[in-house]
Amino acid sequence: MNMAHREDAPVVRPLTDTDVPTSVDTLARAFADYPFTRHVIAEEGHEERVRRFQEICLTRIGMVYGRVWVADEGRAVAVWSTPDTDPSSAFAEVAPVLGGLTGDRQAAYASAEQAVAPHRPQEPAWFLDTVAVSPEAQGRGLGSAVLVPGIEEAGQAGCPAFLETSSERNVRFYERLGFRVTAAVTLPDGGPRTWCMRKDPC
């Protein structure tokens, strides 16, 4: 699956500070109308709330406690949490901010987390926190390319790679990368169907 040796493959590299503004913009646009974020983040000021939510995920979690790869200067970005470090303190620190961003959807966010939690790996795993490709950069293989380093490093570490998606179209995309559906959960409170997916190390 290693695409690094193909001359026409997209250039994928670890995120740098200069990539952050474009990467946040990429994530914000991708998730502005995503079923899960529509369900758990307040409608009032929704797009700005989503932008801040994604910025926190990128800069306070992924960049500090995980791994982040980009392609095309941040027009494609993948943010992973890894079992190498414990982000609990960071999540505790940002929890009030995230709670504020969910606004009147805070109960829906809590019930969604409760619904999918039993289906998450109990052993050490790489968790795909968020991934996106800018609309103008789609169709060039950047989505797959930016995910490959995390998938490969998880496998080399002997860990499963895990993700959740609320888009059925995304399920087929991830299946092509070797993930399999381990659970399909209809979130409470009128939430969307959400698929848990896992790729075990070879």
Rank of each mutant, 00 (worst) to 15 (best):
M3K: 11
H5F: 15
A9W: 05
V11I: 15
R13E: 03
P14M: 02
L15R: 11
T18C: 14
F31R: 03
A32T: 09
Y34H: 13
A42D: 06
H46T: 00
H46I: 03
E47I: 08
V50F: 03
I56Y: 00
C57V: 11
R60C: 13
R60Y: 06
V64Q: 08
V64G: 04
G66C: 09
V70N: 06
V70Q: 08
R75D: 00
A76K: 10
A78E: 04
A78P: 11
S81R: 15
T85Q: 11
P96G: 01
L101K: 06
T102L: 02
G103P: 02
D104R: 14
A107P: 08
A110K: 13
S111V: 09
A112N: 05
E113G: 15
A115Y: 03
V116M: 10
A117W: 12
P124A: 08
V133F: 06
E136Y: 03
A137I: 05
R140M: 01
G141R: 06
G141H: 07
L142C: 05
L142I: 03
G143R: 10
S144A: 15
G158V: 02
L163D: 08
E164N: 12
E168M: 15
R169E: 00
V171Y: 08
L177E: 04
T182P: 09
A184F: 02
T186I: 14
T186Y: 04
D189P: 07
T194F: 10
W195R: 14
R198F: 02
K199P: 09
D200V: 02
P201A: 08
P201K: 08
